[in-house]
Computed example of a mutant assay.
Amino acid sequence: MTSKALFVELHAKSGREEDVAAFLKSAQSLVDAEPGTVTWFAVRFDKSTFAIFDAFDGDEGRDAHLNGKVAAALMANAAELLASTPQIRKADVLADKLSR
Rank of each mutant, 00 (worst) to 15 (best):
E34I: 10
E34V: 10
P35V: 02
P35D: 08
G36S: 04
T37E: 01
T37D: 03
T37Q: 02
T37S: 05
V38E: 11
V38T: 13
W40I: 06
A42E: 07
V43K: 03
V43G: 13
V43M: 08
R44P: 12
R44N: 13
R44V: 07
F45Q: 12
F45Y: 13
D46P: 02
D46I: 03
K47W: 03
K47E: 15
K47P: 05
S48H: 12
T49L: 04
T49H: 14
F50D: 08
F50M: 03
F50V: 03
F50Q: 03
F50L: 02
F50Y: 15
F50C: 02
A51H: 10
I52H: 08
I52R: 01
F53R: 05
F53A: 10
D54N: 12
D54A: 04
A55P: 07
A55E: 09
A55I: 04
F56C: 02
F56W: 09
F56P: 08
D57G: 06
D57E: 14
G58A: 01
G58M: 00
G58N: 09
D59C: 00
D59A: 07
E60M: 04
E60Y: 01
E60H: 06
G61W: 01
R62W: 03
D63R: 07
A64K: 06
A64E: 11
L66N: 13
N67Y: 05
N67P: 00
N67D: 15
N67W: 06
N67Q: 15
N67R: 11
G68W: 08
G68A: 06
G68S: 06
G68R: 06
G68M: 09
G68L: 09
G68K: 05
K69V: 10
K69Y: 02
V70E: 10
V70M: 14
V70S: 05
A71G: 04
A72C: 03
A72Y: 04
A72R: 12
A72V: 11
A72H: 08
A73D: 13
A73V: 09
L74D: 06
L74R: 10
M75H: 12
M75P: 04
M75G: 03
A76D: 14
A76C: 07
A76G: 06
A76K: 14
A76W: 11
A76Y: 09
N77L: 07
N77R: 14
N77Q: 14
A78W: 12
A79G: 14
E80S: 14
E80Y: 11
E80V: 08
E80I: 03
L81G: 10
L81M: 07
L82T: 11
L82F: 14
L82S: 11
A83E: 15
A83H: 10
A83Q: 13
A83S: 15
A83G: 14
T85L: 09
P86S: 04
P86I: 04
Q87I: 12
I88F: 04
I88T: 10
I88M: 05
I88Q: 02
I88H: 00
I88V: 15
I88G: 00
R89C: 03
R89T: 13
R89E: 10
R89P: 04
R89A: 05
R89G: 00
K90G: 01
K90Q: 05
K90H: 02
K90Y: 00
K90E: 01
A91K: 00
A91R: 00
A91T: 02
V93D: 02
V93F: 01
V93L: 04
V93N: 04
L94Y: 06
L94W: 05
L94A: 07
A95G: 09
A95C: 09
A95S: 13
A95M: 12
A95Q: 11
D96C: 09
D96I: 01
